[in-house]
Amino acid sequence: ERTVLATGAVVEQRWQPVGRVGLYVPGGKAVYPSSVVMNVVPAQVAGVRSIALASPAQAAHAGRIHPTIAGVAALLGIDEVYAMGGAGAIGAFAHGVPELGLEPVQRVTGPGNVFVAAAKRVVQGVTGIDAEAGPTDILVIADDAADADFVASDLVSQAEHDELAAAVLVTDSAEFAERVLERLVVRATETRHSERIRAALDGAQSAVVLVDDLEQAADFANAFGAEHLEIQVRDADAVLAGIENAGAIFIGPYSPVSLGDYAAGSNHVLPTGGQSRHAAGLSAATFLRPQQVVRYDEEALREVAPVIATLSEEEDLPAHGEAVTARFGERR
């Protein structure tokens, strides 16, 4: 991007990739080859030169990372891979581990549990992060035109991740809420990780919220700042127009969060815990920094010299102005 402010006065903005990143792929309660793809591909598209990846060591695989994770990393050309997990992995990326030949990184990305999210908060200032992607959450805005079983299955799908996962339904219909609760019991009971799911659904972080109307539902969603926001109502675009804060938004009955987790083409590394109020999901932009490049020639600088002198005097920083006037024959 190039802006010509006057003859001989040009400011350019270029996008420069960070040189080295550390990508975290969780592996405690599940195996996440999809998270390898979601982390690595945007970094490669951005042009990052050096990519390191970490995933927890697996007792079932002789202390190595899960072979599926290793295989996907190899397919993507990543050959710097560490069997380490949790908060320790984030700290290792930020500070480096000379004994392992692990050099510090400029940015750490990737989802994890509450300890990974907390560690990413701690290392900010030492290294950059994408967002605090901790225990997952889903918020579904639905009216009585939605399919209760679809909504229930989507809530269960995210509760499956972790006992601390948040599953929230926001609706303007008490009768519809009851139907969803009935289907939740069935869905949570019949699926494989039912104990974990029930713990998440019964936790204080999960809820059914009754509102007066869908405008109030949008207000609630904005205050909540969901990682995943589904809108399953008659007029989805009207509700979408009122949404400001969400990591990713899924519109209609055939756009479940699971689609975004695996195959939509969007990224599933998203801000959790209300972080979407000020943070965005992972993308190539996460690994890029805008840099402004200033090019003025002598006449262009001479033109703005009086402005600089006036402002520098007003701010009691005279050397700032003197750095300009020195170029035009004024010497002390």
Rank of each mutant, 00 (worst) to 15 (best):
A246D: 06
L259S: 13
D237W: 09
L214M: 12
D147S: 15
V186C: 00
V233N: 03
A248W: 10
S173N: 08
I243A: 04
R196D: 04
F176W: 02
V185L: 04
H268I: 14
N245G: 10
A146R: 11
V257M: 06
A159Y: 14
V269N: 05
V209H: 06
I197F: 01
A152S: 11
I197C: 04
A145T: 15
V168H: 03
T171I: 06
P271D: 08
A145K: 10
R198D: 04
G203V: 08
D143E: 09
V209W: 02
V156K: 03
E227S: 15
L181M: 05
A238I: 14
I138Y: 00
I197H: 02
A236Y: 00
F224H: 11
D144G: 14
I197V: 09
S194A: 10
E160D: 14
S173Y: 06
E182W: 02
E160Y: 12
Q216I: 15
I251W: 01
A199F: 04
S173W: 04
E175P: 00
A204N: 02
V211W: 05
D213K: 12
D149Y: 13
E195Q: 03
S258A: 14
A165M: 03
R198N: 07
V185Q: 03
S194Q: 08
V208K: 06
L210C: 09
A200Q: 02
I243Q: 01
F224L: 13
D172V: 09
G273F: 12
E215N: 12
D202Y: 01
Q216G: 09
D219T: 15
A217K: 01
Y262T: 15
L184G: 00
S153W: 09
F176R: 00
S206D: 03
A264Q: 04
Q158R: 05
A159M: 11
Q232W: 04
E215T: 15
A221K: 02
N222W: 13
A199T: 13
D172I: 13
R183V: 01
A159L: 09
A207V: 11
I249R: 01
G260W: 08
A146Y: 05
L270D: 04
D237F: 13
T272S: 12
A166V: 09
Q232S: 14
A145V: 15
G252C: 12
Q205N: 09
G260K: 09
R234H: 09
Q232D: 13
L169E: 03
R198H: 05
